[in-house]
Design a protein around this nucleic acid. Structure first.
Lengths: 151, 151
DNA sequence: TTTATTTCAATGTTATAACATTAATTTTGC
DNA sequence: GCAAAATTAATGTTATAACATTGAAATAAA
């Protein structure tokens, strides 16, 4: 159908504007598609993101700043998201002994089990863009890279 | 450089996962790029979105629901965003005479003047994806359309 | 060493998204 | 016409983004 149909807008100033609107629209569409997978485990996509990062470093703990650097959204409010994960028992936190300004944040067994259940739906998550062939997915990535830094 | 460099992640499960992560990352990057244009007028991108929609229908007022249907994010909290625009004097609202469940929302002169100032930076906004050629922008739109509905 | 600067996490504020509920009003079914 | 159902806007709640500030601790400069 196309973005013009989806947002009831027939005309765009130019192809660049159309592409940028399409990108915004598709982002929201994609977030919506994956939301239910996380909701089944009572976490949000941002909480999943942090859990995934902490599993990657396990058993090495990460500081708040190290987590933030690895997140897709650099401005994310890592402290408070971590606190919500602590409240759910999915991660734990201690003051770092070597540098008491930092905190050592580590995923718990419960957090790892939660991720394992979500792993089982990995195909479903990758399948969000399943309408694209492998070649097209690569092409999309390349266009997005180029959009950001002009290669 | 590419998404792998930008988020310090060398490996992805597959091209589809890489593309979806790239899409999320690029969305945030693009929103950030345009934020300052709106901030100069002391509005947010969502408030701009509603102003733009109301200008399109002017002098015909729109209801909350009609605005929401035209927004990129269908779940947006239109009522409260409109209230903030009213507080700034950029739109006005009246109960609809024909159907008292509805409200007639209309952009004010002040709101139109705000948009005119932003219009002057239109090129800057379209230029967000300026690293892409016209052909590549079209290609990007087509890939995003296909990702959503498989053509 | 003592002070100034830098680093880092936490916290406060506003705007928004997503979701649920409510209340007013209109439409539908009988 | 009247009761039930549907529609619409408003509001309440939680999570988050973006931004600013604070306070503690480490590092650099004097």
């Amino acid at each position: 159908m196309g973005i013009d149909h989806d947002i009831h807008q027939a005309r765009f100033r130019n192809e660049h504007q159309k592409a940028s609107i399409n990108l915004i629209y598709t982002y929201h569409w994609m977030v919506e598609k994956t939301r239910q997978i996380f909701a089944a485990e009572d976490i949000t996509s941002q909480q999943f993101n942090i859990l995934r990062i902490l599993r990657g470093s396990h058993p090495q703990p990460l500081s708040t700043l190290q987590i933030r650097e690895r997140m897709l959204d650099k401005m994310s409010d890592t402290s408070r998201i971590v606190d919500r994960l602590i409240a759910k028992g999915l991660v734990k936190k201690n003051v770092c002994k070597a540098d008491r300004r930092l905190v050592d944040i580590m995923i718990t067994d419960k957090g790892r089990k939660t991720l394992e259940r979500i792993d089982e739906r990995q195909d479903e998550m990758d399948g969000v863009l399943g309408h694209l062939s492998k070649k097209e997915a690569t092409q999309l990535s390349e266009l997005l890279d180029k959009a950001r830094d002009g290669k």
